[in-house]
Design a protein around this nucleic acid. Structure first.
Lengths: 350, 350
DNA sequence: TTGTAGGCGTTATCAT
DNA sequence: ATGATAACGCCTACAA
């Protein structure tokens, strides 16, 4: 048990500071918030009093009066995925630097929960909200607009939707990955997709592969698609599933690096050579991607930049500015060791 | 640009709800917060009015009056490490379920910043604070106690310090790992430690290895220690460093799975066989540990449990209860494929 | 430059 | 069970 007895029994308030500093509460308030309007002598006295009393402003009172809580809310599917952790981290750093704090909550890939939790964050005083993806309950948009709370969608770039967003076009990204695979000579391409339900990123990425097929006048065979949760183990299972459904595809597009990790690991376990027997492409370019054996070819996403720009956007909005509502960040294919010509070519890999 | 024009020009307040429901604000407040004290008829009317107006309570006013913000603060070194993300996730889920929201900030392994940011979270209204580790600026403890804000240290178990904590004994954990290695017959053991500066977990883990040596009447040679940042690349470099400093150690204790990942990867690149030529042990048991080749022997830590219990502790304190201040969670060694007898024994591994 | 005083939206304390 | 009314701690006109 800790001792909890300190000098004054109660939390000092601004009026206590003022009393000790020998001025009015109004002046004390100004000394703290608008020093340029107060004489240096008083400023010093007030600061001393603050120090001596251990005064901490009461944000509730301040927010009630000034209409500014200095709190921003973030709703992500889960913090347990590296890309969301990265987003959260970047956001937090940027906001803290600007004097804002970050309230974080989780939707667990559930639109209803996302709506509820976002509303809760607004109730708790969030002056702005960061969302992930572009697929939300319509009520959420209505709510945010009714409350005049600025918001941004992240990890998505869909200016036509009309909602502020910062990210990239997931669909185009996997289309390009697939086209790259086609250009290598692959024709039998499979995909291990993330859970597409309520997850526009996963859905868009799958659709991108389909787009590439259609552009070649073909259709992606549903048997060539395995939809798996985001985990290494599920990635392994996805690969096994694909192999069990007929001839071995020569390439696999994965919905995330984690899934690709599993696919590569399973190939190793099954003695399927990568990339000679099968090419594998990830998505995200997480830290581990470059250190897999072979190093993973993947799509690099500027997660940190998304976080920074989301913070910047909201901060600007709160300053009363009107920053551009749509921003696209780069997503480029990093070709490493898990992709090659189908069948492999002597002297080309590993 | 989005339209921002909705039915009533201004945010409805409780008095608006009361007016529409035909009762006083006091009754409206009770109808929402203490339904058992209000007649069903009025409750219905009030709820209808809330619905129709799109009323959202103003948390600032509520907190000011009731002294309850329903906000808990979390200060972690970075959200970008899987274990902290896991902690955050568990904490958030638990708190949300109990009607609390989580304010997250980052210390970046800097004690001064930790102090500042924790204070900021309290200013923002946090009713409780979750910290990581047991090494903090003394002023932080003083501040928290003066403000009577309950707090918990996590990822540490040090009841003798007198501060509430939930976690395990990092030092004992690596001592046990090292003793296991000794029991396998290893005598030349090296360590790739995380950055020990301002990081009690990393420091304790290194100390645990030293403890094991001393218990055998030996000293850990400083040349056998590489201190590296937490990244796969740094883990690789750590291993190279160790190899460059004389005879190859037969085993390496790593301060985290990420570091161990790097060590294993570097061994593969260097054609050093694991575990025949060198045994490697990680710490954390992250998702990928079981999927490395060979699968990583590591110390499993119940990160999610720590988060849940931290939430439970604070919630209990806020209810006015006095839950036990110290709780130890399990941390057990998971022996997988990266450890073996020094020199390797035919038929024993891979 | 400084003091005074009113009110931000709620909840809690009284009465009724 | 309900209504009036007074705070909660701070900021900000406004006055001096």
């Amino acid at each position: 048990m800790n001792k909890r007895l300190q000098t004054p029994p109660h939390n000092p308030k601004l009026s206590d500071v003022a009393k000790l500093a020998g001025c009015s509460t109004g002046t004390a308030s100004r000394a703290l918030n608008k020093p340029e309007m107060v004489s240096d002598k008083i400023i010093r006295k007030v600061r001393d009093a603050v120090e001596k009393l251990g005064y901490t402003p009461n944000n509730a009172a301040r927010a009630l009066r000034s209409k500014h809580s200095h709190i921003i809310g973030l709703v992500i599917p889960t913090i347990d995925h590296a890309i969301f952790a990265q987003l959260t981290n970047a956001l937090e750093k940027h906001l803290t630097r600007a004097g804002y704090s970050l309230l974080v909550t989780t939707s667990e890939f559930d639109l209803q929960r996302e709506l509820q939790h976002a509303q809760l964050l607004v109730e708790r005083g969030s002056e702005g909200i960061v969302l992930v993806g572009h697929l939300h309950d319509r009520k959420l948009y209505d709510f945010l607009q009714a409350k005049k709370v600025p918001y941004v969608n992240t990890y998505a770039y869909r200016p036509l939707d009309g909602h502020p967003c910062i990210g990239f076009d997931n669909r185009r990204a996997t289309r390009q990955i697939t086209e790259y695979l086609f250009s290598l000579g692959h024709t039998d391409i499979a995909v291990i997709a993330g859970p597409t339900k309520n997850n526009d990123r996963a859905g868009d990425r799958l659709a991108g592969v389909q787009d590439a097929f259609r552009l070649r006048g073909r259709e992606l065979d549903p048997a060539r698609v395995a939809e798996q949760p985001y985990s290494i183990g599920a990635g392994r299972e996805g690969l096994r599933l694909l192999l069990s459904r007929g001839a071995r595809p020569t390439a696999v597009v994965c919905g995330s690096d984690v899934l690709a990790f599993g696919a590569v690991a399973e190939c190793a376990a099954l003695n399927v050579r990568v990339p000679e027997d099968i090419s594998i492409v990830g998505f995200d370019d997480q830290d581990f991607a470059a250190h897999l054996t072979p190093p993973l070819t993947t799509l690099q996403v500027a997660g940190t930049e998304i976080g920074e720009r989301a913070a910047g956007y909201l901060l600007a909005r709160l300053r009363g500015e009107t920053p551009p509502d749509f921003a696209e960040v780069e997503a480029r294919l990093i070709v490493r060791g898990t992709t090659g010509v189908p069948g492999g070519v002597p002297g080309v890999s590993a």
